[in-house]
């Protein structure tokens, strides 16, 4: 258990080979999720993933050129940002908005701070939060998964002209699949008190962002990274554990009103966020105790926003707030003694 600690302990990783290797494996873990998203949503999802990733790579290239630094495309990090970002967007998101998200992710989330390892917020989430604030209507426009015509035609919003508002597709979406309501499981729960059964999440039929319904594949990807020691297992465990615990406590208090922990874990982007975004090495704490605090905080804030906020989903904001707290957490938790071995409690 040496590798993860060594790598996590320093944001200024000088050994490019290691970074490149980790990043390549993260991309590997993400690819099945992307493939499943394309299978669920068809051509539009593919176009969105390609566009967002390409924009991220181009933006990274552009800022490297501006700063007169050598290209850093080969470290795969911009590709990860692009893929993750695309997976958090609704499949019907217009491509030009996807490009804006990709640009914002790299420019505001990464280039501003000097590139890889220097950023203080997760770039993919910065991009997501930016477009969430910029295009609130488009980012909450959902389409059904497994629509029969998904490989024959694009969703009408995909090719909206740049800067223009996408057409209203609620009628189209209802036509694409019978009985489609256009609301995510979280919105259904929050506003209509309907709990979606777990099998919808496992089969991928739940309405959600491109990569959010595939709990099994996310778990497998995460497990793979943990097994290969490329990911700190404590963060996802802390995030999911604290979210489940908070949900369980609320359910004990008022079972009629609050859903069971399983629903909380499976719905929305909690899985994806816990496995791939909260674990971003540059933006998570260094100290072992800090890692637990950070993870628990994200889980609890997510549940709080979902239950008491105006928004239906809170994972993104919870992780961004967690990122903002990382310097403080690092400051006030005992640092790991150099050469400390995993397993010895701080």
């Amino acid at each position: 258990m040496k590798a993860p600690i060594e790598l996590r302990s320093s944001p200024h990783v000088k050994r490019g080979v290691s970074v490149e290797r980790i990043m390549r494996n993260v991309v590997l873990a993400l690819l099945p999720i992307c493939a499943f998203a394309v299978w669920q949503y068809g051509l539009s999802a593919l176009a969105l993933i390609v566009t967002v990733t390409a924009t991220c790579l181009a933006t990274e290239r552009f800022f490297n050129w501006m700063a007169g630094r050598p290209g850093t495309l080969s470290d795969w990090s911009a590709a990860i940002t692009g893929l993750l970002l695309a997976l958090t967007l609704p499949p019907a998101f217009p491509l030009w908005m996807g490009a804006v998200a990709g640009f914002a992710a790299i420019a505001l989330g990464k280039a501003l701070f000097g590139g890889l390892g220097q950023n203080v917020f997760n770039p993919a989430l910065v991009g997501r939060a930016f477009v969430q604030a910029a295009f609130p209507v488009s980012i909450s426009t959902w389409v059904p998964a497994f629509a029969p015509g998904r490989f024959a035609e694009f969703i009408p919003t995909t090719f909206t002209l740049p800067l223009m508002a996408p057409p209203d597709i609620s009628a189209w979406a209802k036509g694409a699949l019978d009985g489609f309501t256009g609301a995510t499981p979280l919105a259904l729960w929050k506003f209509e008190n309907q709990v979606t059964p777990p099998d919808a999440f496992l089969s991928g039929a739940a309405t959600a962002s491109a990569g959010e319904t595939t709990a099994v594949l996310i778990l497998l990807g995460g497990l793979y990274l943990v097994a290969r020691r490329f990911m700190d297992w404590r963060i996802p465990v802390a995030v999911l554990g604290s979210a489940a615990l908070a949900a369980w406590a609320f359910q004990l208090w008022d079972p009629a009103r609050y859903p069971d922990p399983g629903f909380v874990l499976l719905s929305g982007g909690l899985m994806l966020g816990a496995a791939f975004m909260a674990t971003d090495m540059a933006t998570s704490p260094v100290t072992p105790l800090g890692v637990w605090i950070y993870g628990a905080l994200i889980g609890v804030v997510t549940v709080m926003i979902r239950y008491f906020g105006g928004l239906t989903e809170g994972v993104m904001y919870a992780i961004l707030l967690g990122n903002a707290l990382v310097p403080l957490i690092d400051q006030y938790t005992p640092p790991r003694v150099f050469g400390d071995v995993k397993g010895t409690k701080p």
Partner: peptide, 15 residues
């Protein structure tokens, strides 16, 4: 600006 963006998650809290 980024912090402000993150704080937008609290919108509607306590409504």
């Amino acid at each position: 600006g980024l912090l402000s963006l993150a704080f937008m998650g609290f919108a509607g809290l306590g409504a």
